[in-house]
């Protein structure tokens, strides 16, 4: 029995016992030597929400909805299986590494001995010159010679299981929710196109240097684009383009309610096999 099996067996056993003994006073009595010494196979990052409740319980979350003018626009209920997922750094790490790998251009190229310019003639005869023997002047040991085992254009992308990609996004969103760094706007269109005002607004957000604004429409709001295009502190994405790496690059996330619903929809549609 390996640790995974032990862990699963114990979980099943405890669930069974819980079902059997409905009154809370009856506690499962298990005398198994390995129970005390069991190891955690998957490590979650333990955290709590601001309200004090435990993070990662898949509970639906009620959040205030506002806008750039900080007006109260009521509340919205966020799906717990998207915005309150246990935080696993390893999954996010895998997604980020995958994203960075697949965006590599891979156009690096060096020349091998057959590609380097120059003749392939033997420079001088094998014996009698007193020199070291050479068959070509473009070997890797020569100046202007070839490169051994050098880089050639290639594709760095690989496939990450779709379940892992999806889980990564859920975790990243859940982390921002737990940090209190997800703001929900009913509309991400600012009242003016001025960069200065947008910059002031972003400065006002506590503990936040950069913010990612996610619009629910396919084509991002033009006023928003104008106001943020020259700002280092703000980036804009349509909901379609929301991804783990972009979320992690920014300290805070501003999402329109439409974007929230689109993402929830995306996370709830079954994975296409």
């Amino acid at each position: 029995m390996n640790n995974v099996q032990k862990c699963m067996a114990m979980r099943a056993l405890s669930r069974y016992l819980r079902l059997q003994s409905s009154p809370a006073s009856v506690k499962p009595q298990v005398n198994q030597p390995w129970l005390s010494a069991q190891r955690r196979v998957v490590s979650y990052l333990r955290a709590t929400h601001a309200g004090g409740e435990k993070q990662g319980c898949y509970n639906d979350i009620e959040m205030k909805v506002t806008n750039f003018n900080n007006e109260d626009k009521g509340t919205a209920l966020l799906a717990g299986d998207v915005f309150d997922v246990p935080i696993r750094r390893d999954i996010v790490h895998r997604v980020v590494v995958w994203q960075l790998a697949k965006r590599r251009q891979g156009t690096h190229s060096t020349k091998t001995i057959s590609e380097v310019s120059g003749t392939g003639r033997k420079p001088y005869k094998q014996k009698g010159t007193g020199q070291a023997r050479h068959g070509t002047l473009r070997g890797p040991q020569f100046r202007h010679g070839a490169r051994m085992h050098g880089p050639k254009p290639r594709d760095y992308s690989y496939t990450l299981p779709k379940k892992v990609r999806r889980l990564g996004l859920k975790i990243a969103l859940s982390a921002r929710v737990a940090e209190g760094k997800l703001l929900i706007f009913d509309d991400v269109s600012p009242s003016s196109h001025k960069t200065k005002e947008m910059a002031k607004y972003i400065e006002g957000i506590e503990q936040c240097k950069r913010v990612l604004i996610v619009d629910g429409t396919d084509k991002v709001n033009t006023l928003l684009c104008r106001a943020t295009s020259n700002l280092y502190a703000a980036d804009v994405l349509p909901a379609k383009g929301l991804n783990v790496y972009s979320i992690l690059q920014h300290d805070a996330l501003i999402m329109s309610l439409d974007a929230i619903r689109l993402i929830e929809n995306r996370m709830h549609t079954p994975i296409n096999r």
Binding site: I61, K64, I87, E179, L183, Y201, G204
Partner: peptide, 18 residues
């Protein structure tokens, strides 16, 4: 644009989960 205060769940300290 006024600063966002008490928006969403809370304004936490600088600790980042991820």
């Amino acid at each position: 644009f006024p600063a966002p205060t008490a928006i969403g769940r809370s304004s936490p300290s600088g600790f980042k989960l991820l």
